[in-house]
Amino acid sequence: MPSLHITDIEAAINFWRARKPSPDGVTLAPEIRALAEVYALMVYYHEDEVDQRGFPAKAWEAWMAWYESTPDTPCIAICSTSQGDEVCKGCGRTFEEVQLWPGMDPAEKRATWRRITIEGHSWRFNRYAERAAEGPAEPPISDENAADA
């Protein structure tokens, strides 16, 4: 069973810190407390990964809320595995990962995301980075709106 990497725990904590900032600089939201407990144990025991089995329920709920805010797939709609490549030039996933993606659990998907991000060789990280950018694209400025810009 795949493990959750400490960087994903950190990202989830930061997600909740932005969403529910401390009112007094000391008090933490319940989601942050739950994730911080896991994070602190990982740091204390010098662990980079934690098995998702046995993950505390409140921490899992907080992690899943963060996970659901992330892009579902690394696909940038340029799939070279359909042309016979073992590793997709567009997203960096292997043929097997592309085929099994819909059935992967969140930890498996995050492990794949981590690997392709670290490798950083796929077009999603260079040639077509703008296509992979998170968030909606800016609408083009029309002639009518050009005067306002």
Rank of each mutant, 00 (worst) to 15 (best):
L4N: 11
T7V: 13
W16T: 12
W16N: 13
R17F: 10
R19L: 15
K20P: 06
P21A: 10
D24G: 02
L28R: 13
A29N: 13
E31A: 14
I32Y: 09
A34V: 11
L35P: 13
A36C: 10
Y45F: 14
D48R: 12
E49Y: 05
Q52W: 04
F55Y: 06
W66I: 08
Y67V: 04
S69L: 08
D72W: 08
T73L: 04
T73A: 00
P74A: 12
I78M: 01
C79D: 01
S82K: 14
G84I: 03
D85Y: 01
E86H: 01
V87L: 05
T94H: 03
F95I: 00
E96N: 00
E97A: 01
E97F: 01
V98A: 00
Q99A: 04
L100V: 04
P102S: 00
D105T: 02
A107Y: 08
K109V: 04
A111H: 03
R115I: 02
I116Y: 00
I116V: 02
T117H: 12
I118W: 08
W123Y: 05
R124T: 03
R124L: 01
R127N: 00
R127E: 00
A132V: 04
A133F: 04
P136A: 11
P136Y: 09
P139T: 07
I141D: 07
N145K: 11
A147E: 10
